[in-house]
Amino acid sequence: MARAQGLAFHLLRRALSSSTPKPRLLVQSITPSISSYTHHQSSSRPRPISLALAGALSFSVAISTAALAKEPPSPDLLPRNVVLYQYEACPFCNKVKAFLDYHDIPYEVVEVNPLSKKEIKWSEYKKVPILTVDGDPLVDSSDIIEKLSNRIHPEEPVLVDDEGKKWRRWVDDHLVHVLSPNIYRNTSEALESFEYITSHGNFSFTERLTVKYAGAAAMYFVSKNLKKKYNITDERAALYEAAETWVDALDGRNFLGGSKPNLADLAVFGVLRPIRHLRAGRDMVDNTHIGEWYTRMETAVGESSRIMS
């Protein structure tokens, strides 16, 4: 692992000028933190030929069901000034955005440059997401969501929901770590992923080209070693298995939360949303049963509540 990371960093150093901040920051900022890879038994249900047809047939039902599920909090409990410091493709940042969007909490976004991180120089915490709520900084996606949820739903303490806690931990400890080997599976998919990252990120024209090609090369090698480290022999199979594990957890319910999404639904949806229209996400929907739930979640979460400047 260390040897491959060294090669990745060497590629970045050669591509970036000496005046550019250390390239290691790019790899650290895009690769999720590592934890144990948990093996789940594959679902015994047969794989669908395609979920496109099933999604189309259930679309009207999904809309009517999900539309009833959304219950915006009382305006008196909403924070007044919310700013999210993020990387556009960061799964943990997207968890926070899914929560904010679902609860119609307006927020501004500050895109952090993963090379310089100049946008968060003011903070002792040097990772994203950072969310400032009425001037107070909150860090760590799960902690941010718990504190906001307890604030806007004081009658529904987060820690009481044991099932939700279990699956939120699964998202952080397993699901996010299946993503990198999939979106950087080969050079083509690595370039596709970095095209998405650089088109949304805070990059100059030169940085965009450098980050796209050097970053894609670096992460391609890193993803190969993640597969070895966590005994992933087939990254697509691992992604499909994770999707089916989540569908099994739903146990026939529209959402894990029942008639409306809970924090676990929002966490799974949030980390999957950035990859949905990449090749890995398209393959996941076409080859598993997760598509109908995902469609319901898209409708339930609704439009982004981001304040566009």
Rank of each mutant, 00 (worst) to 15 (best):
V82T: 08
E292P: 08
E207M: 04
A56R: 10
G55F: 06
K118C: 08
N113G: 11
S17V: 03
I275E: 02
N186E: 12
P114S: 05
T233I: 10
Q86K: 14
P114T: 04
L148R: 04
A89N: 05
V171K: 00
D286N: 10
Y196M: 06
R45G: 02
Q41V: 11
G302Y: 11
P48K: 03
S309A: 13
G252H: 14
L175E: 03
R282Y: 00
F99C: 05
Y125N: 06
V247Q: 00
V82W: 05
A2I: 13
V271A: 00
V268W: 13
A98E: 08
Y230G: 11
I152G: 09
A264H: 14
K126L: 08
L272N: 10
P75H: 02
L26M: 03
S36C: 04
G258Q: 06
L266T: 14
R208L: 04
V139L: 09
H39I: 08
L272M: 15
I105H: 05
G55Q: 10
E244F: 09
R80W: 06
L256W: 14
L226I: 15
H177G: 05
S18R: 09
E195K: 12
T299N: 02
A237P: 11
V61L: 07
H177W: 05
L12N: 04
V160W: 07
P75S: 05
R279A: 01
A56P: 00
L131V: 14
N182G: 02
F194T: 03
A67Y: 14
L191V: 14
L51E: 13
P46N: 08
Q28W: 08
I130E: 10
R169P: 00
P91M: 02
Y230E: 03
L7N: 11
A217N: 05
E108V: 06
K224M: 13
K229I: 05
S43M: 03
F255D: 09
A54C: 10
